[in-house]
């Protein structure tokens, strides 16, 4: 089997291994690399990371399952994760999340038909003073309301059609 990650990201992988005394410690950063490459933690990504870290694929699979930022299914181009935990909810995050789902026409954890947006709710993201907020592909977008959100969605749609 060819290891796509090993061939394509040789330097980055070596730099990652250099940080730790064991290869196993690199499993989390390399799972992020696999997710970046394949769009999700795909079966081939699991096998490649296992080979690199000299682990059994089952061990790598269990780590991917334990941590919520590893996506075990393909997601939309923009993965929107809205914090609906208590401090955000006290500032309207539950309503914001409901409005966002309605606007995009999807349910909890679902992806829009055009593959653009996946919408999820998540636990506290340490941004309680800037609610409502969300994480878009791991980048924070804070102090939101639906007007700002609609403008962002249109902007992302425009950027995506420019890319085509």
């Amino acid at each position: 089997m060819t290891n796509r990650l090993a061939e394509k990201y040789k330097d980055r992988i070596e730099q990652t291994f250099a940080k730790y005394p064991t290869k196993r410690s690199a499993v989390m950063p390399l799972l992020f690399l696999a997710q970046e490459e394949y769009g999700w933690v795909s079966p081939e990504g699991i096998l490649e990371v296992a080979e690199l870290c000299e682990l059994d694929p089952t061990q790598v699979d269990s780590i991917a399952g334990f941590y919520t930022m590893y996506s075990e299914t393909p997601k939309g181009k923009y993965w929107l994760q809205v914090c609906t935990d208590l401090p955000c909810a006290l500032r309207g995050a539950d309503q914001f999340y409901a409005d966002l789902k309605e606007y995009l026409g999807v349910g909890d954890g679902e992806t829009t038909d055009d593959g653009m947006f996946t919408v999820d709710h998540v636990m506290c993201l340490a941004a309680c003073d800037r609610a409502p907020m969300l994480q878009c592909n791991f980048h924070y977008v804070e102090n939101l309301d639906m007007d700002k959100m609609k403008a962002l969605i249109e902007q992302w749609r425009a950027e995506a059609s420019d890319d085509k």
Partner: peptide
């Protein structure tokens, strides 16, 4: 060194 968790 920095090390990133993954949501837990």
């Amino acid at each position: 060194y920095t090390h990133l968790g993954a949501g837990a």
